[in-house]
Write a protein that binds this DNA or RNA. Structure first.
Lengths: 175, 175
DNA sequence: GATGGTGTAAAATGATCGTTTTACATTGAG
DNA sequence: CTCAATGTAAAACGATCATTTTACACCATC
């Protein structure tokens, strides 16, 4: 595994468990088994490293979302939450911690959110056979986001509830 | 206004805009117009101050949620988001930043979440005239949480969507 | 008019922050 | 063989972290 991959993987775990600001560079270098000089040569800066972590996570997340129904989407989210999640959306957490002050982080967050929203819009078109249904898309987005956030303190049942709610909402548009 | 109220109010604003860890004690003292000695005499520690901020915010939020229908609940959330919100749930942000390591913060977060969940459960009973409907309650919780989180990047429309979705879900239980 | 409580200002605490630099070892390609 | 690249270890950078301490002012009450 090359250095950047190792660094990003190790950093993601630390950021996820302890927060971005609370995780110092020494923890990151130690965890990746590299010197700080090498870290800066590859990652550029701490904010750039955070952006890289978010970028990789987005790619990995997107791979899980390669499904063709809303139901499968929420089942994918359930799998994700079981394996990786439970601590909320790492993108929104990064955004919140940095106050939106770092452009590279903001960009990574918005790109991820746009990707998920696009996927949901695509699936809603497939399921309803309508060219667009903005209200329904927005509702599914809220359920998706809510399942992720509520899972922090209510566990997997949040994702199950979101999946059931989405099914109910879709039902009305399939008459 | 007494010292603690002034301190907590000023701190809440700073924490909300810039994050908890990123906000140093000097910013807090300067913003409240008090010395660090006074801050520690009243607040105890930074984590205790964060817990106090969350406690006050919970009380203020609870006052807004004194409604008697699910629809009014989401309208109250809409008002809140317009006036105070837009940056996500400050409780979950605190939890995420501290990694759940501070017991006083964890307690404040869980107390808040329990209060909101109880309110939702109460309203669902009123609206459905059933003694309990755990699935529906869970779905409303997810919508409530999702509206708050999605509003960060999608604006008020998330809350409107959540309110509409909740109405649809409730409808099926009123037949 | 001394006392105790409550405040400020400012310095000191030792640790840790993100980042850069210095000095040195290894390695693959010309 | 040499050059350039790429890595490490370790120190230094100045800034900032949360917290405590020292020294002093105000003010109400006994």
């Amino acid at each position: 595994m090359d250095i950047m991959s190792k660094l990003v993987a190790a950093s993601e775990a630390l950021f996820d468990r302890h927060g971005f600001t609370a995780t110092g560079m020494d923890k990151l270098t130690k965890s990746a088994g590299i010197s700080s000089r090498t870290l800066y040569k590859h990652a550029g800066s701490k904010n750039a490293l955070i952006a890289s972590v978010l970028g990789e996570r987005d790619k990995r997340f997107a791979r899980r979302l390669e499904v063709d129904s809303i139901d499968a989407l929420f089942k994918a989210l359930e799998d994700w939450a079981r394996v990786e999640g439970g601590r909320g959306c790492l993108f929104l957490r990064a955004y919140g911690e940095t106050g939106g002050d770092s452009p590279e982080i903001v960009e990574a967050v918005l790109a991820h959110k746009a990707r998920v929203a696009d996927k949901i819009a695509e699936l809603v078109i497939v399921e309803t056979r309508q060219s667009d249904n903005a209200d329904l898309v927005e509702q599914i987005i809220v359920l998706f986001e809510g399942a992720t956030a509520a899972a922090i303190y209510r566990g997997e049942q949040s994702v199950v509830a979101a999946r059931m709610a989405a099914a109910t909402l879709l039902e009305r548009h399939r008459l």
